Amino acid sequence: KTVHVNGVQYDFDNPEQAERFAKEMAKKAGLQIQFHGDQIKIE
């Protein structure tokens, strides 16, 4: 899974790890999470 945070890309082999990371980042920055198939976007 790939997580995009403000244009920066983070790759994870483990989907659960990717989602946990995305939730942490979104919570910290007060941003929205969008799921697009294999990609998670935080903007």
Rank of each mutant, 00 (worst) to 15 (best):
F12C: 08
V3R: 00
M25L: 13
Q32M: 11
L31F: 10
D13G: 03
V5S: 01
A18K: 00
K41E: 08
A29F: 15
P15F: 12
N14G: 03
T2N: 02
Q17W: 06
K41F: 15
V5R: 00
F35L: 09
V8G: 02
G37Q: 08
A26T: 02
F21R: 00
V5F: 15
V8Q: 07
K28L: 14
A22K: 04
K23W: 10
E16I: 08
V3Q: 02
Q39A: 12
G7L: 02
I33A: 07
R20N: 11
Q39V: 14
V8R: 06
M25G: 00
K23I: 14
A29E: 14
K41A: 09
D13W: 02
F21C: 02
V5G: 01
N6I: 02
A18L: 02
N6G: 09
E24V: 01
Q34D: 07
I33N: 05
L31M: 11
Q9L: 09
K41L: 14
N6V: 03
E43P: 09
R20M: 12
K41M: 13
A29D: 12
Q17A: 13
G37F: 07
P15A: 13
A22R: 05
T2F: 04
P15S: 12
A26K: 02
A26H: 02
H4T: 13
E16L: 08
D38F: 11
D13N: 05
I42T: 07
E24M: 05
K27I: 14
Q32H: 10
F35I: 11
A29R: 04
Q9R: 14
T2R: 03
Q9E: 05
D13H: 03
F35T: 07
Q9P: 08
N14F: 05
F12Q: 01
E43L: 09
G30W: 08
H36M: 12
F35K: 05
G37R: 04
A18G: 01
F35C: 04
Q34C: 14
A18Y: 03
A18S: 01
V3M: 02
H4W: 15
F21H: 01
N14Y: 06
A26I: 04
F12M: 02
N6C: 14
V5A: 02
E24Y: 10
D11F: 15
M25K: 01
E19Q: 09
Y10Q: 01
I33M: 07
H4Q: 08
I40Q: 06
Q34W: 10
M25A: 10
E16W: 09
Y10K: 01
P15L: 11
D13M: 06
G30F: 05
E43Y: 11
F35N: 06
Q17H: 05
M25I: 13
A29I: 10
Q17E: 15
Q34V: 14
H4P: 00
D13P: 07
D11G: 04
Q9C: 14
A22C: 08
G37N: 08
G30H: 09
E19T: 06
G7H: 03
Q34M: 12
K27D: 15
A29G: 09
K1L: 14
I40H: 06
E24A: 06
I40L: 09
N6Q: 05
I40G: 05
L31K: 03
Q34Y: 13
V5T: 01
Q39P: 08
N14A: 04
Q32A: 09
M25H: 05
K23V: 09
V8P: 00
I42L: 14
I42V: 12
G30M: 05
N14C: 13
I40V: 06
A18T: 00
A26C: 14
I40W: 08
F21I: 03
V8T: 06
K28G: 06
V8W: 04
V3T: 01
A22D: 02
R20G: 04
A29T: 14
K28E: 12
A22N: 02
D38W: 08
K1I: 15
G30A: 07
K1M: 14
K1S: 12
V5Q: 02
K41D: 07
K28F: 11
G37H: 08
G37W: 07
Q9F: 05
A22Q: 04
V3K: 00
Q17P: 00
I40F: 07
D11L: 12
D11S: 11
V3E: 01
D13A: 08
G7D: 03
K28M: 11
G7S: 03
E16P: 00
N6W: 08
D38L: 09
F21W: 09
G37Y: 08
Q17K: 05
D11N: 12
Y10T: 01
M25W: 11
V8A: 03
A26E: 07
Y10M: 03
E43C: 15
G37C: 02
Q17N: 06
K27N: 14
Q34K: 11
D38A: 10
T2M: 04
I33C: 08
Q32D: 07
K1V: 14
D38M: 08
E43M: 09
I42N: 06
G7C: 10
Y10N: 00
K23F: 10
Q9M: 08
K28P: 09
V3A: 03
P15W: 14
M25Q: 10
E16G: 05
A29N: 13
A22V: 10
T2L: 04
A29C: 15
Q9H: 06
Y10D: 01
Y10F: 09
F12W: 02
H36Y: 12
A29L: 15
D11A: 10
F12A: 01
E24H: 04
E43I: 11
F21T: 00
D38Q: 10
I42D: 06
G7Q: 01
A22H: 02
L31H: 07
I42R: 01
N14S: 14
F35W: 13
E16T: 05
Q39W: 11
L31C: 14
F12P: 00
K27F: 13
M25N: 02
Q34S: 13
K41R: 13
F12E: 01
A29K: 10
H36Q: 10
L31N: 09
D13T: 05
E19G: 02
T2W: 03
F12N: 00
M25C: 15
Q39N: 11
I40Y: 06
A26V: 04
E24P: 00
E19H: 10
V8H: 07
A18V: 01
K41T: 12
A29S: 10
